[in-house]
Design a protein around this nucleic acid. Structure first.
Lengths: 129, 129
DNA sequence: ACTTGCCTTGACCTCGGCGTCAACGTTTAC
DNA sequence: GTAAACGTTGACGCCGAGGTCAAGGCAAGT
């Protein structure tokens, strides 16, 4: 199958597929005229990439999963490197959520104080922050 | 005070100050030789910018706050536009936290499944995902 | 006079993940 | 035969918030 139809079936664009290839994630076969040809295996690789991106992994983070599939495992996360990425990413997300919760609290406090001051500019003056 | 010392005192860099000026957030006075001069008012403006950036506001989002201060209010969030930014940003953060929590759950599930499979490849086979 | 250290503007670099365009070759339908 | 609709590579654009030169102007100490 050629790149355009393949891209549509797998749910991405030709440009993205060429980009993944330029990053070394894919290695497309070429037909006689130089056109890229994609098969079932490529479908699994690209699906893995897109699924992982959807949960926030960077392209580079998907590399171990893709290599794991290419090594013959039936799942991208059957290899130790992939597990490590899961764990690292999970820690990153945890930390980000914590930071964002702090930010949220801070924003709520600022908003509440500003609104209070807006409603009653005199009584709130000296106790803020 | 000139830009270098001012930057150091307020806790940023000369480059950042020039950038804020290029974005229309600051309007520095110039001394006879063309050097920028900063005063107490600038200190308050820049402090406001940095404080808001620290809680995740974009530079552009700090604009209403800065304008509010320049309009003579003693707080950057004394104006309606600033309050709106608080509310919008708070909603954004809320949504982001929700999304990240979903991502975290998904990652945890993937990790748990992959680890289980790793430990015991046979029993887990048909119940995953 | 000379060096050092500040200042000025302008312009390009960074990062991720492609989008978009240019200029050209191939396949396919009419 | 020819035009539409594919494909190819290469190169530049985008987003935010500045970093990092480069080339030159000023001020001050020795």
């Amino acid at each position: 199958m050629r790149i355009g139809e393949f891209a549509q079936r797998v749910g991405t664009t030709s440009r993205a597929l060429r980009f993944y290839e330029s990053q070394g994630l894919l290695t497309a076969h070429r037909s006689a005229n130089g056109y890229r040809e994609y098969d079932e295996q490529d479908f699994r690789l690209v699906t893995e990439i897109l699924t992982l991106q959807a949960v926030g992994l960077s392209l580079d983070d998907t590399r171990p999963f893709v290599e794991c599939l290419r090594a013959g495992y039936d799942r991208g996360d059957s290899c130790a490197d992939s597990i490590e990425v899961y764990e690292r990413k999970l820690a990153e997300v945890d930390e980000l959520v914590d930071r964002l919760n702090a930010v949220r609290a801070s924003l709520r406090a600022k908003l509440a104080t500003a609104l209070a001051r807006h409603l009653d500019p005199c009584t709130v003056k000296s106790e803020e922050f």
